[in-house]
Simulated assay, not measured.
Amino acid sequence: MSLICPLCHSPLTLTNRSWCCENRHQFDQAKEGYVNLLPVQHKRSREPGDSAEMMQARREFLEAGYYQPLREQVVSLLAPVLNQSECKILDIGCGEGYYTAALAEAADRDAQIYGLDVARMAIRLAAKRYPAVRFCVASSQRLPFADRSLDAIVRIYAPCNEAELARVLKPGGLVLTVTPGPHHLQQFKALIYREVQLHVPEQKDYPGFRQVAQHALRYPMALTGTAATTLLQMTPFAWRAREDVWQTLQQSEQFSCDADFTLTMWQRD
């Protein structure tokens, strides 16, 4: 295992459903199989992350298949790593485990696939459904993994600490990021803003990494009214939507919009 103590950074060992380090810090494994490695002093709120209701709505949206092409593309791009014996891959900001589970299904039988999220409820839902994945509650700003222990990291819209990514990846390891493409959900924007502006590409540096590939994935979606409102809730511009926008979407038999993603591969020096 590659997990380390979030308090003293010593290796953690699983004994009788408890993760313990040499300094006697102990973290009990939940009955669902995940471990909470987010100390109270590292929390920004009492219960970080989305509510249980939001997580359930997100799961229903994803299971309807609207983001299935993205899921398949993520797995395809990481196939060379997934086929390696005993590879270790981390999905940060994994939520309810939709993409993490696909990685586990495609991976070599001896692979270790980890899912990490700050939201305990999301990890609890994920661990109950996907026992093949090793889930933990933790912050992406303080990754509970040993130095140079991972082969690849997946970052889909999640916040990250670039220095932490460099620390935990092996030399030559990969980071796959997914960010909004220029036209992502532009039809939602048209309902909310007077002028629709294209998404600006993410301006983020990864010191110690070089960009080795970039792919665009764009396709149309035909959403039900319920799916449209759920998807809007998942976006950062939901706060600007007026009540009449929510009502229009909810009452729609079908709402057509574009999914547009940019997938970028970075390699550790």
Results as ranks from 00 to 15, higher is better:
G97H: 04
Y99Q: 13
T100Q: 00
A101Q: 15
A102I: 01
L103H: 04
L103C: 11
L103T: 08
A104D: 05
E105N: 14
A106Y: 11
A106T: 05
A107N: 14
A107M: 15
D108N: 15
D110F: 08
A111N: 14
Q112D: 06
Q112A: 05
Q112G: 01
Y114Q: 10
L116K: 12
D117V: 01
A119S: 14
R120A: 13
R120T: 10
A122D: 04
I123F: 07
R124W: 06
R124Q: 13
A127H: 09
A127G: 13
A127R: 11
R129F: 12
Y130D: 11
P131Y: 14
V133F: 02
R134I: 07
R134L: 08
F135H: 15
C136S: 11
C136K: 07
C136H: 08
V137Y: 09
V137T: 09
V137G: 05
A138V: 09
A138D: 11
S140N: 05
S140H: 06
S140L: 01
Q141V: 09
R142D: 13
R142L: 07
P144D: 08
P144W: 08
F145I: 01
F145S: 01
A146V: 10
D147M: 04
D147G: 07
D147H: 10
R148L: 02
R148S: 07
S149L: 02
D151N: 10
A152Q: 12
R155S: 15
R155Q: 15
R155H: 06
I156T: 05
I156L: 04
I156K: 04
Y157W: 10
Y157D: 05
Y157M: 13
A158C: 03
A158Y: 00
A158E: 00
P159K: 00
P159Q: 03
P159E: 01
C160E: 03
N161C: 07
N161D: 09
E162C: 04
A163T: 03
A163N: 11
A163Y: 09
A163K: 12
A163H: 11
E164M: 03
E164D: 06
E164R: 02
E164C: 03
L165G: 00
A166H: 08
A166C: 05
R167D: 01
R167L: 00
V168K: 01
K170A: 14
G173V: 13
G173M: 04
G173P: 06
V175M: 15
T177G: 00
T177D: 00
V178E: 11
V178Q: 14
V178L: 15
T179N: 09
T179C: 06
P180W: 04
G181A: 08
G181C: 08
G181V: 08
P182T: 12
H183K: 14
H183E: 15
H184Y: 06
L185K: 07
L185D: 04
Q186N: 15
Q186P: 03
Q186A: 15
Q186F: 12
Q187E: 12
Q187T: 04
K189R: 06
K189Y: 07
A190C: 09
I192V: 02
I192E: 12
I192Q: 08
E195R: 14
V196P: 03
Q197S: 10
Q197V: 01
Q197R: 13
